[in-house]
């Protein structure tokens, strides 16, 4: 691109609403990576590859939704990977012990939400950095996993297996799993809560300026605690989807997953300082990560660590991009 093209592109970009810019950029990156795959490899540009992005990353989408709530308030939740692992463990262990599947699901969701709530309360009432509190939560959840069992426990419950392997046919040869439906339901619910409820708008207000929100008489404490409970719930649900995906519970499931989730949210255009971002962006962020992964598996000769390198580069690029936008609006 020469200088003139860049200026023109910039003019075109300036006409778009500024606040959607990061999400649009993520969408462009998604289209570009997917397009690259379609050009390079036969069979990449198929509907099933696209739906597989959702199938393989349903749990990540759910986790990213919870993380979006937290990051929008300006916080961070490092415990999501470990809580998801704990969820697979609780599910597998309770099913092995013969609990009815519904009760076991309920136990997982309650445990995850309670852990998130607890972290939120500590963060709010003791005024401790979210980074430290959720780091402690991460260790706690990992430890609890290994307390239940150091071995992997496979899930043999017939009902669970039916849900896990069941598919919905969208069109000839294009199938989805139930996990995808659950993930999409979570996304829709999150969009509703964030944009059409007072809780959701307060999440944005707290992220924009916590002191202002307090002086405006908004229930900031409730929201700060609430987002960690939401994230805890999403981690538990994401863990359940992951256990459907893997059909096992294991204490070392999802090691480092929290960082993938944070990366997806940031690539999706959510500012780490809070107040700016959309759930749709986070979903796109997950899809970008998924596409990169698919690309590398299509290539075949590259080690899977290349995924990490690409994610690293993307993350850096997006953070610099956001800085540019923020600096311009300042």
């Amino acid at each position: 691109m020469n200088v003139l093209d860049v200026t023109r592109a910039r003019e075109r970009i300036e006409r778009l609403p500024q606040r959607f810019l990061p999400v649009i950029a993520t969408f462009v990156v998604f289209v570009l990576t997917f397009g690259t795959g379609s050009v390079l490899y036969d069979g990449f540009a198929s509907p099933q590859i696209l739906t597989n992005l959702f199938v393989d990353n349903a749990f990540l989408i759910v986790l990213a939704v919870g993380m979006t709530f937290v990051i929008l308030t300006g916080g961070i939740d490092l415990s999501v990977g470990a809580v998801a692992a704990l969820s697979t463990m609780i599910a597998a262990a309770t099913l092995q012990a013969g609990w009815p599947p519904l009760l076991s699901v309920l136990a997982v969701l309650v445990a995850g939400t309670a852990l998130g709530l607890l972290m939120g309360l500590v963060i709010h009432f003791f005024d401790v950095q979210p980074f430290i509190v959720t780091l402690a939560g991460m260790f706690l959840a990992r430890g609890l996993c290994l307390l239940i069992s150091v071995e992997s426990i496979s899930i043999t419950d017939p009902a669970f297996r039916t849900v896990a392997t069941g598919t919905i046919t969208l069109a000839e040869g294009v199938t989805l799993t139930y996990s995808v439906l659950i993930a999409l339901a979570v996304v829709l619910a999150a969009v509703y809560v964030l944009h059409l409820t007072r809780f959701g708008r307060t999440v944005y207000a707290v992220g924009g300026s916590a002191t202002s929100a307090r002086l405006m008489g908004l229930p900031t404490g409730r929201v700060r605690v609430g987002v960690y409970a939401v994230s805890g719930f999403c981690s538990a649900l994401g863990g359940l989807l992951f256990s459907l995906y893997m059909l096992s519970g294991y204490g070392l499931h999802g090691v480092g997953m929290e960082l993938d989730v944070i990366a997806a949210v940031v690539i999706g255009g959510t500012l780490l300082t809070g107040g700016v971002g959309y759930v749709a962006g986070s979903v796109l962020g997950v899809l970008v990560l998924g596409t990169v992964q698919t690309l590398i598996s299509f290539e075949g000769s590259l080690s899977s660590w290349w995924t990490r390198i690409v994610i690293g580069v993307l993350l850096l690029a997006f953070i610099m991009f956001q800085r540019l936008i923020v600096r311009r609006t300042e």
């Binding site: 708008r201 944005y204 207000a205 992220g207 924009g208 300026s209 002191t211 202002s212 929100a213 002086l215 405006m216 107040g275 700016v276």
Partner: peptide, 12 residues
């Protein structure tokens, strides 16, 4: 109250 430094949320 309208405070000296505007206490609103610039992101909304």
């Amino acid at each position: 109250t309208v405070y000296q430094e505007v206490n609103l949320c610039p992101n909304l």
